[in-house]
Amino acid sequence: MRERFVTQILLMTAGLIIWAAHLGFVYGLNALACTFDFARLELFGMALTTLTIGVATLIALGAELLVLSFAVAGLGAMGFGGQEQYRFMGPITATLAGLSAVAVLWQGLPVLVVPVCAGAGG
């Protein structure tokens, strides 16, 4: 069976990559919102930044669930290069996606209780 090392490693760590992208996005957005003072913009009665972070969190969670189901359903066998490698990498992919989903949810929750730029020291 042909090895596709880079594809296999990227698939296996897809959950973690989504987590990292989410953290980078929400932190970057919040920093820019406070620096350039667009945190006050509102949409549907909610701060636009809060809303965007919430939507980003939902999208990230959706992506995590997609990876999780991809790995669990066994559809990943093709991506992993065959049943032998899937038996090892599939469960790792699924567990990492599950763990990352918890981390994404955990780091998205503060937006519900903490105002966007509270306590910013400049």
Partner: peptide, 30 residues
């Protein structure tokens, strides 16, 4: 693998007293 990745999302927890917005700190606290 998870430790390797997550450890890159913690650097701001050394900067909790620098005046960054509380929401930013919350992401790194999480």
């Amino acid at each position: 693998l998870a430790t390797g990745f997550f450890s890159f999302g913690l650097w701001v927890h050394h900067m909790f007293t620098t005046g960054l917005p509380q929401l930013s700190l919350s992401f790194f606290s999480a």
